[in-house]
Design a protein around this nucleic acid. Structure first.
Length: 279
DNA sequence: ACGTTGACCTGTGTGC
DNA sequence: TGCACACAGGTCAACG
């Protein structure tokens, strides 16, 4: 999520107010709405002005003229690159360009995505906001005023592992593999702990830990474990500051025990077997 | 209704 | 060098 927020902030500074004059679409399968329909997608978006860009969970929402909403999900390897043309810094991504949005000022927004998991949708605002994937999202972890209570209610009674629950966007928005590991370490909770068994105090601690790691990563413009780059092709700085993610075999920063890795629901979870409790 | 397992894709790193 | 296999920022349809 800090990566997505960084991109959204950049787009608001550098793409807001621009008109999209031409579109190149090389991977139409990424269009989820209107369903796999390249022509209607292009016809809807061409000629529209970008009024503002917002984030909800890990979705990037472009509000366009004509009461339209264009929504992207970058998944694991999606990038937005904003340049006059693909420069040296972004050459690494140039063979994975899936779409190009040409602006009225001569610049262009390139969408690159090595694994082709990224998605885009466009339609009337209400129409798109009511699509189930966007509508059924959990509370934003960085917004207060009742969001902890919503999170707590969503977790209540769950028999799943807390690690999986944290990564479920219907439970809480915007938390993936990196920040779930980081927050669980900070809150001293074992990733395999049954979510519904955690005390209210543990959940509160976890919620605060989420805010701590997300805010820290936001300041550092996200985590570049591997592919992530911002709209100018630059890396984020959080990877170097990470607490536990991708530290298997290294000493725990708190107690010195060896960090372990286990698979949970097909994903890697990194944790300290000594100071993260299962109970 | 709930929890788990594939599916979607392309690439890189590691061990034999 | 070649080959097989594990692994990689996410999400959801399909299944029991």
């Amino acid at each position: 999520m800090p990566e997505v927020q960084t991109i959204v902030n950049d787009l608001n500074r550098k793409a807001k107010g621009r008109r999209i004059v031409r579109i190149r679409m090389d991977w139409p399968k990424m269009i989820k709405y209107p369903p796999a329909d390249k022509r209607s997608f292009i016809n809807l978006v061409r000629g529209r002005k970008i009024l503002r860009v917002e984030r909800r969970s890990k979705y990037i929402k472009f509000y366009l003229s004509g009461d339209l909403l264009m929504v992207f999900h970058l998944k694991m390897t999606g990038h937005f690159l904003l340049t006059k043309k693909l420069n040296v810094k972004s050459q690494k991504f140039s063979k994975h360009i899936r779409a190009v949005f040409y602006f009225d000022d001569g610049r262009a927004l390139f969408f690159s995505d090595r694994r082709k998991f990224g998605t885009m949708r466009v339609g009337k605002i209400g129409e798109v906001e009511n699509l189930p994937d966007l509508k059924n999202l959990g509370p934003e972890p960085l917004e207060n005023y009742g969001n902890f209570e919503k999170f707590s209610a969503n977790v209540d009674g769950s028999k799943r592992k807390i690690k999986q629950v944290l990564m479920d966007p219907k439970i809480v928005a915007g938390i993936g593999n990196i920040y779930s590991d980081e927050a669980l370490w900070l809150a001293k909770i074992h990733p395999l702990a049954e979510a519904g068994n955690l005390t209210k105090i543990q959940l509160k601690k976890l919620w605060q830990a989420l805010q701590t790691v997300l805010k820290k990563s936001l300041k550092l413009r996200g985590t570049s474990a591997r592919d992530y780059r911002d709209t100018e092709g630059r890396k984020g700085g959080y990877y170097e500051k990470r607490l536990v993610y991708h530290r298997e075999g290294e000493p725990c920063l708190r107690c010195g025990a060896k960090i372990k890795r286990v698979r949970i629901g097909g994903r890697s979870a990194h944790f300290c077997p000594n100071c993260q409790v299962l109970k």
